[in-house]
Amino acid sequence: MKVGLYFGTFNPVHIGHVVIANHMVQYSELDEVWMVVTPHNPLKKKKGLLEDFHRIHLVNLATADYDYLRPSDIEFNLPQPNYTVNTMAYLQERFPKHEFALIMGEDNLDSFPKWKNYEVLLHTYKIYVYPRIDHSRVEPSPLMQHPNIVVVDNAPIMEISATFIREGIKAGKNMQPLLDKEVWKYIDHNLFYKK
């Protein structure tokens, strides 16, 4: 089985995440996408992050209607901060018959060389890249030419950010259209992101 790993803090998971994950299964050779909820991204601040169990629950709610999208809390029990190279090695050992790949936005390729042992990831795994609008980018990342980079050209460009959603909720805006119905209900009921 070919499994794409879509890492994120998913704070909160929104329709853009689900659209991209679904598209990767529909328009590539991936059989499943596992949405790996990261407890703490070493390149991001932890402030304002919902508790792990809330974020994995939200991903469960958002993916409930899709057999080929699976929430994963695999990183919750691994040493923190989480490094993708360690997670990949752990998953490969635990699921030796699976063929794992990474999924990332084109904008993440710019920071990819900052990742721990990124060369190992680049040479060991395929990386499925979806387009992002970046007006500051003059030319594509040189990594786009690497044989293990698979550009999924026809992926919809989703310019929705979890930061925008959190800020909107805090400002009293209705962000419901950007979230799965059950995700919105859970966030609203628990008054998340209001402060």
Rank of each mutant, 00 (worst) to 15 (best):
N108F: 02
L109Y: 03
L109P: 12
L109N: 05
L109E: 10
D110W: 15
D110Q: 13
D110R: 06
D110I: 09
D110Y: 15
S111V: 04
S111L: 09
S111M: 13
S111K: 04
F112C: 02
F112A: 03
F112W: 02
F112K: 01
F112I: 01
P113W: 13
P113I: 02
P113Q: 09
P113F: 12
K114Y: 13
K114M: 11
K114D: 14
K114W: 08
K114S: 11
W115Q: 03
W115I: 01
K116V: 04
K116C: 06
N117P: 11
N117V: 00
N117G: 00
N117K: 10
N117C: 06
N117L: 08
Y118N: 05
Y118S: 01
Y118K: 02
Y118G: 03
E119I: 01
E119L: 07
V120P: 02
V120R: 06
V120I: 14
V120W: 10
V120F: 12
L121D: 07
L121R: 04
L121Y: 04
L122D: 10
L122T: 05
L122R: 04
L122W: 00
H123D: 15
T124W: 05
T124M: 06
T124R: 11
Y125V: 03
Y125G: 07
Y125I: 01
Y125R: 01
Y125F: 12
Y125W: 04
K126S: 14
K126C: 06
K126H: 15
I127Y: 03
I127D: 09
Y128M: 01
Y128G: 02
V129E: 06
V129A: 03
Y130D: 07
Y130H: 13
P131I: 01
P131N: 09
P131D: 09
R132M: 09
R132V: 13
R132T: 12
I133S: 14
I133G: 11
I133F: 11
D134A: 14
D134C: 12
D134T: 12
D134L: 14
D134V: 12
H135D: 15
H135P: 07
H135W: 09
H135V: 15
S136P: 10
S136V: 08
S136I: 05
S136Q: 10
S136D: 14
R137L: 13
R137F: 10
R137S: 07
V138M: 06
V138E: 11
V138D: 08
E139R: 09
P140G: 11
P140A: 07
P140S: 11
S141M: 09
P142E: 08
P142S: 10
P142L: 07
P142V: 07
P142G: 07
P142N: 06
